[in-house]
């Protein structure tokens, strides 16, 4: 097992950690963090699988470089939308989620 394959397997695990965070955390900033962790996991899978036989693969590296820049654009747009929601509703969570939990305090 090469170290690149280990990183690809880690990427799959990170992707699912991100998915779980995206679904389970009601706070929108956490969802954005989870989305970024998903993206990092996918990048690791792309490069790790491309290089699992030990050779460096410039094509998958270039694709991931593109992906990192696109993911920061998506993050910025998501933050702008989340902020708009905060200004309109006073909450940073999606309408209809997190209302039914009286004991839980919102994140500071």
């Amino acid at each position: 097992m090469t170290s690149a394959l280990i990183y690809a397997l880690t990427g799959a695990a990170l992707f699912l950690i991100g998915v779980a965070g995206l679904i389970l955390q009601p706070h929108l900033l956490r969802k954005i963090i989870g989305f970024n962790i998903m993206a990092s996991g996918i990048f690791l899978v792309l490069v790790g699988l491309g290089q699992r036989e030990g050779s460096v693969d410039p094509v998958s590296q270039a694709m991931v470089l593109t992906g990192i820049v696109v993911s920061v654009a998506a993050t910025a747009l998501a933050l702008a939308l989340a902020r708009r929601l905060l200004d309109l509703t006073g909450k940073m969570r999606l309408p209809g989620s997190g209302e039914g939990m009286p004991g839980k305090k919102p994140d500071a």
């Binding site: 790790g48 290089q51 460096v56 991931v64 470089l65 990192i68």
Partner: peptide, 8 residues
Amino acid sequence: VRLHAADI
């Protein structure tokens, strides 16, 4: 860096 991808 460990994956020899200095650009990324």
